[in-house]
């Protein structure tokens, strides 16, 4: 085989820039997926301004803020894990990754209690309490459950992904020369963070 072909062949099998490009494109699809929901939110917020205002007051700003801080911090630890692996500090990288998973878990626990409290108060899709309220409030909570639920699902997926990466890092599959997989998980994680950055004010703050 000629020299040229070998060069290309190697190029085919290891193209980190290409991989990153693929990941970014995938992130766009996630972005637009949530974008579609934001469109729905925007329209209903516009249609039912007053009722959204009333409904939003029922959400606990404290829990929302806490979760925002948790998620932002987990984004930091994720990016630090990548710095660490690039500096060939395997232990520190694993440490940061575990912290990230831990924070994500904390986020989910928070979320669980928040949802449970709402459900306990009888506010969930199809409940009598909710159906007794105005259309705008039904929609607000419908959106709240669907959007935070979908976001929560992404957090779970992120946790699994980072968990797999931790294992890869331990095995050495992810190392200071080849950390594209970890980076991919990181990019995904940051996107989950960005989506929350928008969900937080839209549901908890704009009252």
């Amino acid at each position: 085989m000629s020299v040229v072909a070998e060069h290309i062949s190697e190029h085919v099998h290891r193209d980190d820039l290409g991989s990153r490009m693929g990941i970014w494109l995938f992130l766009f699809t996630e972005l637009v997926l949530f974008g579609g929901m934001f469109l729905v939110y925007a329209v209903y917020r516009f249609t039912y301004q007053q009722e959204f205002h009333v409904a939003a007051k029922e959400l606990n700003t404290l829990i929302g803020t806490l979760n925002t801080l948790i998620l932002l911090t987990s984004s930091l630890t994720m990016v630090l894990a990548i710095v660490a692996i690039r500096k060939d500090n395997k232990f520190l990288s694993i440490f940061f990754q575990v912290i990230t998973i831990f924070l994500a878990f904390g986020f989910m626990v928070n979320k669980y209690f928040e949802w449970m409290a709402k459900i306990h108060h009888g506010i969930y899709p199809g409940s009598e309490t909710l159906l007794a309220k105005g259309n705008g409030e039904i929609l607000f909570f419908g959106l709240y459950y669907v959007m935070t639920g979908l976001h929560g699902l992404h957090v779970l997926i992120g946790m699994v992904l980072i968990g797999v990466m931790t294992r890869f890092t331990m095995k050495g599959t992810v190392n200071s020369d080849k950390y594209i997989h970890l980076e991919a998980a990181g990019l995904y994680w940051h996107l989950v963070d960005i989506i929350w950055i928008f969900l937080f004010p839209l549901f908890y703050l704009i009252t």
């Binding site: 490009m21 930091l76 990016v79 940051h190 960005i194 004010p201 703050l205 704009i206």
Partner: peptide, 26 residues
């Protein structure tokens, strides 16, 4: 609220997601 959210996500995109260091194509 949205402006602050946009600034925050800009920071995440640029630094955490390394967009600053990527090529113009990205």
């Amino acid at each position: 609220a949205l402006t602050i959210a946009i600034v925050k996500s800009y920071l995440v995109l640029t630094f955490f997601m390394h967009l600053k260091a990527e090529t113009a194509t990205f």
